[in-house]
């Protein structure tokens, strides 16, 4: 049942044979060596793998922060590799919500101003900005922390502000690179519960994590090793695990 539901969703991201090389002096580092993935709307994917396997590199690629050395990337049917800087900025602004391990909030701005920032870049007027930022902060449970600066908030609250900021422009996809990496496990679970509720409300979420406990929350897991996909239990790409097994592990269907 769940499979059918997912299969009918439109394809949001399609990457094919993506490679990324870095020059380290004379040496070439192959961060990604040909990765292909299909991501549909309202998927919840965890990307796992050992340190240095290329998880962050892949995330940056998906988030249009970086361009691949070779390979094809289509976002919503548009060819990303052909886009210029401003178009990439526009995609990041409207279609993608980033959540960072280190929160990356502006230290001197209060929660409201931090959350407003993507709306500023989207050219939305101040009143609407305020209103929407306040509403999203309310949604992530920080309705009473609108005027707190980051240093007046706990780590979990900071990450909530960051998530609110990622959500405020109503993006097609949320990318989170180790969102719980700087949080204790209890706070991490709270953040994961927030992601879960976002997923249920129809958001598409990709998160990078080291921890199996965190990855467990996702509905699909992609393992990377040495810049290649080692396993993908999803519906597309080179899925290794049979679908049925995956669904059994799905916490949403388990309960």
């Amino acid at each position: 049942m769940g499979q059918m539901r997912q299969m009918n969703r439109p394809i949001l991201i399609e990457i094919e044979n993506i490679a990324k090389d870095y020059m380290m002096g004379e040496q070439i580092v192959h961060a990604l060596r040909g990765v292909s993935l299909q991501i549909r709307s309202n998927e919840y994917i965890a990307i796992m793998g050992p340190s240095g396997s290329g998880k962050s590199t892949l995330m940056n690629m998906l988030g249009c922060l970086d361009t691949p050395t070779s390979g094809r990337y289509e976002f919503n049917g548009r060819d990303v590799s052909a886009m210029n800087d401003d178009e990439l900025a526009a995609i990041r602004n409207r279609e993608i919500g980033f959540v960072f391990q280190t929160f990356n909030l502006l230290p001197r701005a209060d929660s409201l101003r931090n959350v407003e920032l993507p709306l500023v870049y989207a050219g939305i007027d101040p009143e609407t900005r305020r209103e929407r930022a306040a509403r999203v902060l309310q949604d992530v449970g920080l309705g009473d922390r609108l005027h707190h600066k980051p240093n007046e908030l706990s780590g979990g609250q900071r990450q909530r502000v960051a998530i609110a900021r990622a959500l405020v422009n109503d993006p097609s996809i949320i990318l989170a690179d180790e969102p719980t990496g700087n949080l204790d496990s209890k706070t991490g679970e709270e953040i994961m519960a927030l992601f879960e509720s976002l997923y249920r409300r129809g958001h598409t979420i990709i998160l990078v994590t080291h921890e199996a406990d965190i990855a467990r929350h996702a509905r699909r897991t992609v393992h990377l090793r040495d810049g290649l996909i080692e396993s993908d239990d999803g519906f597309s790409g080179i899925g290794i695990l049979p679908m049925g097994d995956r669904l059994e592990a799905d916490p949403a269907t388990r309960q």
């Binding site: 401003d86 900025a89 990041r92 980033f98 990356n104 920032l117 993507p118 870049y121 900021r165």
Partner: peptide
């Protein structure tokens, strides 16, 4: 520098 990176990730263009 990190703030600049963050801003770019949030959609700031070069001219911004």
């Amino acid at each position: 520098t990190r703030e600049i990176g963050t801003r770019k990730a949030l959609g700031a263009r070069r001219r911004t």
